[in-house]
């Protein structure tokens, strides 16, 4: 599909959608959103790119092997669960730390569930894109 409209739209939409997906991912703990939605959104951004141009360009933009991304996501999610073991809690229990950062009044809160959600994000993104790209390449 070599539609000029699609290509132009994709150029603008891709960064926007990606940014939005990251915001949804990180804000998901407090507002609607999270790793699943974020990952799906990011996947649709790359799917758009692949449809407007071709799979090769979308893959170049990603720079990462998709199945490796799935593996990375799963590993992150699992590893986030091991932190709680160090303080004697059950596996995957959430831990939170307050980290003061220069220039902000409130300390930044970092927790293992965020790490877990990033794992979800990467896994979903990798899985969905594997499916779409594989199909598209076969069709092409």
């Amino acid at each position: 599909m070599n539609s000029l409209v699609l290509q132009t739209a994709s150029r603008f939409l891709l960064p926007l959608l990606l940014l939005l997906s990251v915001v949804i991912l990180l804000r998901g703990h407090n507002t609607p959103g999270g790793g699943f939605v974020g990952g799906l959104l990011a996947a649709s951004a790359f799917a758009l790119q692949a449809m407007a141009f071709d799979v090769e360009s979308a893959r170049r933009m990603l720079r990462v092997n998709l199945l490796a991304m799935v593996g990375l996501g799963l590993t992150l999610a699992l590893v986030s669960g091991f932190f709680s073991l160090s303080v004697g809690g059950p596996l995957l229990k959430g831990l939170w730390f307050e980290v003061p950062v220069l220039g902000f009044d409130d300390p930044i809160k970092i927790g293992t569930p965020v790490l877990f959600d990033i794992g979800v994000y990467l896994t979903v993104l990798g899985v969905v894109l594997t499916m779409i790209f594989t199909l598209q390449e076969v069709v092409e």
């Binding site: 699943f36 979903v124 899985v127 499916m131 199909l135």
Partner: peptide
């Protein structure tokens, strides 16, 4: 439901393939 939606998506894609 949220996870079921995502799983159903994966199943659908797999079945289509």
């Amino acid at each position: 439901i949220l996870t079921a939606i995502v799983i159903a998506f994966a199943i659908t894609a797999f079945t289509l393939v």
